[in-house]
Design a protein around this nucleic acid. Structure first.
Length: 203
DNA sequence: CACGGGATCGTCT
DNA sequence: GACGATCCCGTGT
């Protein structure tokens, strides 16, 4: 229980494997003493330099994307459509811009606060189904981009609570919202827990 | 349930 | 100046 994932977990080469391994893990935030958490049920892999859907395609290095080149175990958070704070896990060794978008989780700890942040008066699957709304429920903002997920004092981390997702319970499909990425758009790099009602809608 | 559009702003051209 | 790794609400069936 309460076993925080360490650098070794994040710094492996195979971003697809890590994306699957993250299913069933617990994403936790603790801002100003307010802890909230949920079990990850949906992820998407982005693998520069060859992936046209990645912000770091062809190793494009800008103020925004530079954090993706750091060693695995930090957060890459960016603003989408001026509204949504998208939370990604940076993986692999320094210099390799692999990242995993966390798309949905099953709410677990302090559901009341997550509902408050979303202005929900009762629990519905939409509370944390989708990358933008999941971040809102957890209180994650773009200003936390670059935050370590492994440092002892980090406000964001991922835990193993011994919840096993067997391989046959993982469904792979194309990623969402990446039609512009040509041949990469069809790559089955979106991973979901089969039969979970907490995942975002199928396309 | 399918669809169409508006919100809203940092980032890159 | 255009647009996006989204979401929600309105309309119509």
């Amino acid at each position: 229980m309460n076993n925080k994932l360490k650098r070794d977990f994040y710094q492996r080469e195979d971003v697809l494997q890590i994306s699957k391994d993250l299913l069933g893990k617990y994403l936790v935030t603790n801002f100003e003493g307010q802890l909230t958490a949920g079990m990850i049920v949906e992820t998407e892999a982005y693998r520069a330099p060859d992936d046209k859907a990645s912000h770091a395609y062809l190793n494009r290095f800008t103020d925004r994307t530079k954090v993706m080149f750091e060693a695995g175990g930090v957060a890459y958070i960016y603003l989408c459509y001026g509204i949504h704070h998208m939370f990604n896990v940076v993986t692999a060794q320094e210099g390799i811009a692999h990242a995993i978008l966390i798309r949905a989780m099953e709410p677990v700890d302090n559901i009341e606060l997550m509902q408050q942040r979303r202005q929900f008066d009762r629990l519905k699957p939409q509370l944390t189904a989708g990358p933008g709304v999941m971040s809102k429920a957890l209180g994650i903002l773009t200003q936390y981009t670059g935050t370590s997920l492994v440092a002892p004092d980090s406000p964001i981390w991922i835990e193993d609570r011994d919840h096993i997702i067997p391989p046959e319970a993982i469904v792979a499909s194309p990623r969402v919202g990446v039609d512009y990425a040509e041949e990469c758009a069809s790559w089955p790099w979106r991973f979901r827990v089969k039969n979970s009602k907490w995942t975002s809608k199928a396309k």
